[in-house]
Nucleic acid binder design. Structure first.
Length: 321
DNA sequence: AAGGCGTGGTG
DNA sequence: TCACCAAGCCT
């Protein structure tokens, strides 16, 4: 057992201060989200967690509603083709999440008798479920005691405890140990704590312009005490224009709008393509062609979609989700 | 283990 | 307006 200089040892008094104030704040200010309702299920929480990976609540809400209405249990989703899941995913982004959620539903049917497992280890074994999502489902759906660490929680602890404007680019073992050391011993308090610290990071202790005036622990915040120093690194912006991601997104939009198989040339040709399709497909194709991507990039991205299972090609070479 | 992977709300 | 970046996961 070695100790690094980065290890933050927090006094019992400060931990109690954080527990008391953040949990009280949450009990007064928690958003009324449907996946937090009393009638939530393991599945409803699981669907929300998949959709919330790198996507804000506001955009998730309507898709989650229609998803849960259509597929109220894992078995309902597992019974349809994965392309249905990808289309229903709509414009949420990262459509491979839809594929993984579908695969996870099938695994739940096959290995867990159709019931979402409650243990961290069993959840972690499901497709698309990593350490964050496994802990989140175990805690928020089943009320277990597990340490949830997401980007919000990392930022809250980074500021209040470590005095940093922003946590590092990737989660470290020391950070994970710190989060565990801050967990309330009491089961019910620990469940609230996980949700409360995340909510504080999402609503108050935000990345860009935190609302410290409204923060319940500003009086004990190490970052404020240090004079709000700048982050010691500059986050590198995410490139977009001209990237494969943009092109893949445009191709996926075409496939989502299509009601049947499409000529592959519609996706892989950089030039004009004669076609007579519904307005929506035509518009999506126009956007794709407007990118004016080189043929080599079109081919690469198209092959990527096929390899990822997001698109399928029939014997005649026609493409669909 | 660093980098790929969508999309759009927001300051 | 237009960068920024968000309840990560996987390889």
């Amino acid at each position: 057992m070695s100790s690094s200089p980065n290890n933050s040892v927090v006094s019992p008094e400060k931990i109690a201060f954080l527990h008391r104030n953040i949990n009280a704040w949450f009990r007064a200010h928690a958003r009324d989200l449907p996946w937090r309702a009393a009638d939530r299920s393991g599945w409803s929480v699981m669907v929300s967690e998949f959709m919330l990976q790198q996507t804000h609540v506001k955009r998730v809400l309507p898709v989650w509603e229609t998803w849960m209405e259509r597929w109220p249990t894992p078995a309902d989703l597992a019974a349809v083709d994965s392309s249905e899941a990808v289309r229903a995913w709509g414009r949420l982004g990262y459509p491979r999440r839809a594929l993984r959620l579908h695969a996870a539903a099938q695994a739940i049917v096959e290995k867990h008798n159709g019931e979402v497992p409650s243990s961290y280890e069993e959840l972690l074994a499901l497709p698309g479920v990593g350490s964050y999502t496994a802990a989140a489902i175990s805690v928020f759906a089943f009320g277990n005691r597990a340490t949830v660490v997401d980007t919000n929680i990392r930022r809250v602890f980074g500021r209040t405890v470590r005095g940093l404007a922003l946590p590092g680019k990737s989660l470290t073992a020391a950070e994970m140990r710190l989060a565990e050391s801050l967990m309330p011993d009491d089961l019910e308090e620990s469940v609230v704590w996980n949700a409360a610290t995340m909510e504080l990071g999402a609503l108050i202790c935000t990345a860009k312009s935190p609302r410290c005036e409204e923060c319940p622990v500003s009086s004990g915040c190490a970052w404020i005490a240090a004079g709000k120093p700048e982050a010691d690194y500059v986050p590198t912006g995410q490139a977009w224009a001209g990237t494969d991601r943009q092109l893949r997104g445009a191709m996926m939009a075409v496939l989502r709008e299509a009601t049947g198989p499409l000529p592959a040339e519609l996706l892989t040709s950089g030039g004009r393509v004669d076609f007579a399709f519904p307005q929506e497909v035509a518009a999506a194709v126009q956007k794709l062609q407007k990118l004016n991507s080189p043929a080599e990039q079109l081919q690469r991205c198209f092959a990527g979609l096929l390899a990822d299972g997001l698109a399928k090609q029939d014997d005649a070479g026609r493409v669909s989700l």
